[in-house]
Computed example of a mutant assay.
Amino acid sequence: MAPIPRLRDYRGPALLSYGFRPFFLFGSLYAGLSILAWLPMFYGELALSTAFAPRDWHIHEMLYGYLPAVITGFLLTAVPNWTGRMPLQGRPLLVLVLVWAVGRVAVTTSAWIGWEAAAVIDNAFLLLVAGAMGREIIKGKNWRNLKVLIALGVLLAGNTLFHIEAHVLGAADYGIRFGIAATMMLIMLIGGRIIPSFTRNWLVRENPGRLPAPFGRFDMVTMVAAGAALLAWIAAPGWSVTGAMLIAAGLLQVARLARWAGERTWRDRLVFILHIAYAFVPLGFVLTGLAALGLVPTAAGVHAWSGGAMGIMTLAVMSRASLGHTGRALVASAAMQGLYLLLIVGALARVCAAVHPAWSDALLHLAGLSWAGAFVGFALVYWNVFTCPRVTA
């Protein structure tokens, strides 16, 4: 994302001057703190007044609580670049943040207020974001980017399905797979654009030689194969054909990643971490395919996708975008590199906990504390980035 071209004469708190600031800050805090609640919930030491089963609360708040906050922060910062219009700031931005926060409270207290009320309040955030984005894109006559409304609509549909399924059936299996599959498609689409682009820019400047392959027919084939495999997984996760499709899609994603020359970017940690994050995409496909064949637990692939691809990719994008949009140098500090490493360790530990049940207690604690430390640590390391004015010199 390029710097926002123009701003209103804004005199309020810096935190509310750009959409990414509050949503990246509070989203990352929530991602970390909610895991600290989830660990005692998992072991039966804590109970929340939610209508969801404990597992479903945990998954819902990652898929439909944390991720929409990050996506919203990204869109509120990108759309003004696309349209040339003023960004959302001040009170309107505060309203969106509060609606998101109230949604988190509503889901967590849904046993008190009722699942229907919680679903309405929770979905209100995505509806408001879609309305705000649609208005800006239409007024800016930036018709080609109306497709972002499709992504928001998919999240809204998945969230609605999650609430209904959890109430009617007691568990949100289809809603979970739908949300994971939709998020993975977004990562493959957006990652397939930004990772080669950022890599090319750095290599041309710092390390001439082999460059990432441009987006082409091979990328289209990998996306179609991945989409078909994910649809099969949503519908029939235990079917052997689904397993074969997932493994084949994973191998194609390995080849896709190898074409981006990521091994040549290790000196720029802001770029290199994007490649590491994307590596969990094919790992998740292969492990989920093996799970469909009954060879590994389902949780292994799901957590490669969620803890690895989703977690590391969002942290990588937030850390890079926040620096660029506040006028700071695009350099990963030593502290930020430590947080990247912490999250990688946590993601691998969570996958291993599923594969090796005998070690699960220690590995689950390592994974949970690593995740919490990475996201809360990010909020603390970037506190001034989010709350102080843009650097002008």
Rank of each mutant, 00 (worst) to 15 (best):
R6E: 04
R21C: 11
P22V: 08
F24T: 04
Y30H: 13
A31Y: 08
A37S: 09
F42R: 14
A47K: 12
G65K: 06
V70F: 15
T77Y: 08
G90T: 06
G103Q: 04
A106M: 11
A119C: 12
I121C: 09
L126M: 15
L127E: 05
L156G: 11
A157E: 08
G158H: 02
H163T: 06
L169I: 03
A171K: 12
F178G: 01
G179Q: 07
I187S: 01
L189R: 15
G209R: 07
G209I: 02
P212E: 01
L251M: 12
L252K: 07
V254H: 05
A255E: 07
R256W: 05
A261K: 00
A261C: 11
T265L: 01
D268V: 01
I273S: 12
F280C: 06
L283I: 14
F285Q: 08
T288M: 14
A291T: 08
A292K: 04
T298M: 10
G301D: 06
A321G: 00
S322M: 07
L323D: 02
L323P: 03
T326L: 08
G327W: 12
Y340V: 00
V351P: 07
H356G: 00
D361T: 11
A362G: 15
A362P: 01
L380E: 05
W383L: 15
